[in-house]
């Protein structure tokens, strides 16, 4: 028990230190690098709190993809964060003091509220709908059975963000252009790794039905595959028009499923025995769509307009 307490305390201290350094460092590159370390520590915390799905998503998406996105923008630019006027240390300390004050006040209120109310499960899980669900893993059941509507709108948000990013480019075809790196070691490694990554993405996807994993974690791996193959020139970038169409595929498939279910069983209501297959099929589309949208975001960030 004491070992667990020490580990929790160390993780908390690590998270606080990395957060403070990432927030108050003057150099963009250092700030972004420390932020990536912050993400890795969070992954350990999610695992400690019994949330393996969130840990996988954090490692793949929040630490991995966000890191790729941020480094594409920060790379090659060693601009300090305050080029014109450097704010003084006293101001920094004052900001930190305000933040700690707010944090302590919020904690006092929240812990009081937590102690006055007994913990209960929320939503459909509380109504014991889980055994009737079309998939066994509770988190996947919530995402794609009980709250499919939320997940549909989420993929729409992602597609809109990617479309907006592509729209900031000048209207030349192809819309995205990135420098291709054809060094033999790199292309060889990518050629050897790509099949492994494809299998990993597929496994994460199918595993999501009855254990931690699923479309989001798989989608992050797909992002990696797309970026690696594009950056080594294995995959040629499609034209601006095809890119825009690709971005809309996920939302379109989701809408078609929604309309089909609305006409038969009811708006996005999945039922056994075909519900499980529908969830895996939807997740496959979702994973590829998440992968393409995030890769387009990263490539748009590294393309000079």
């Amino acid at each position: 028990m004491t070992a667990a307490v020490v580990l929790d305390a160390l993780l908390a201290a690590g998270v606080l230190v990395t957060a403070v350094v990432a927030l108050w460092h003057r150099e963009r590159a250092a700030s972004v690098t420390v932020f990536l370390g912050f993400g890795v520590l969070l992954t350990a915390i999610w695992a400690r709190l019994g949330a393996p799905d969130v840990a996988l998503a954090e490692a793949a998406l929040a630490a991995g993809v966000t890191g790729a996105l941020m480094t594409t923008v920060v790379a090659g630019r060693t601009r300090s964060t305050a080029p014109a006027s450097r704010s003084s240390r006293a101001v920094d300390v004052a900001e930190g003091a305000v933040a700690v004050g707010v944090g302590v006040a919020l904690t006092a209120v929240t812990v009081g509220a937590m102690r006055s109310a007994a913990p209960v499960l929320t939503g459909d899980v509380a109504t014991e709908a889980l055994p009737d669900s079309v998939v066994a893993h509770p988190v996947t059941a919530v995402l794609l059975d009980f709250r499919t509507y939320d997940t549909m709108l989420e993929i729409v948000v992602l597609a809109v963000a990617a479309l907006a990013a592509v729209s900031t480019l000048r209207d030349a075809a192809p819309a995205l252009s990135v420098p291709v790196d054809r060094r033999p070691v790199l292309t060889g490694a990518v050629a050897a790794l790509t099949p492994v990554l494809v299998v990993l993405a597929a496994w994460l996807l199918v595993a999501g039905s009855d254990r931690p994993g699923g479309a989001f974690q798989s989608g992050a791996v797909v992002t990696g595959i797309v970026l690696l193959t594009v950056l080594t020139g294995t995959l040629r970038l499609p034209s601006a028009r095809t890119t825009r169409l690709l971005l809309a595929v996920g939302s379109t498939v989701f809408l078609v499923v929604a309309l089909a279910t609305a006409l038969t069983t009811g708006w996005l209501t999945l039922e056994n025995p075909w519900g499980g297959t529908a969830v895996v099929a939807l997740e496959a589309v979702l994973a590829v769509s998440i992968g393409v949208c995030l890769a387009v975001l990263a490539l748009a960030g590294s393309t000079r307009a």
């Binding site: 954090e58 996105l69 989420e154 995030l294």
Partner: peptide, 12 residues
Amino acid sequence: LTGIVIAVSVTG
């Protein structure tokens, strides 16, 4: 999980 994906798209 939904929040993480939205956060990544906003950041991107």
